[in-house]
């Protein structure tokens, strides 16, 4: 909108700030993009995991144990664990940010989710590594 003096201010952002593309939070679209990348990766991993579980239904301990310890299955399990927990952490955090307006509760919940997803991911990773390496 031109003003009477002919001075035209369309944005308060500097050109450098726009070129950096990091936005007001200074992290850009990293989190948004990672949510998409992780969901894309989880499509084949989920199909593989559910298909495997369905085939292992009712199998004795030794069979399930041997299945998880194979290098290829252990690799896919580790990928599934890492990506699932990252996806989960971002998803739950987004929900907390959208619906919880009190800073204390939101921050507490966010940190609790971060801690829980990290610990669960580590526990699952160590379990798979033990299955793959120690048997």
């Amino acid at each position: 909108m031109p003003d009477p003096k002919g001075l035209k201010i369309e944005t308060m952002r500097s050109t450098l700030s726009r070129a950096r593309g990091l936005g007001a939070a200074n992290t850009g679209v990293q989190e948004w993009w990672m949510q998409r990348l992780t969901s894309l990766a989880l499509i084949p991993l989920t199909l593989w995991f559910v298909f495997s579980l369905v085939q292992l239904t009712g199998a004795p301990y030794a069979v399930v144990h041997a299945w998880a310890g194979t290098p290829i299955h252990a690799t896919l399990l580790l990928a599934l664990i890492a990506i699932t927990f990252q996806h989960m952490r971002m998803g739950v955090q987004t929900i907390a940010e959208d619906y919880i307006h009190g800073t204390t509760v939101r921050l507490t919940l966010t940190l609790a989710v971060k801690a829980a997803s990290l610990l669960l991911a580590l526990a699952a990773t160590i379990a798979v590594l033990k299955l793959a390496i120690a048997g």
Binding site: A123, A124, A127
Partner: peptide, 10 residues
């Protein structure tokens, strides 16, 4: 899921 994997390894 984590319980299942940890139990399997334990």
């Amino acid at each position: 899921l984590v319980w299942f994997l940890v139990a399997l390894a334990s």
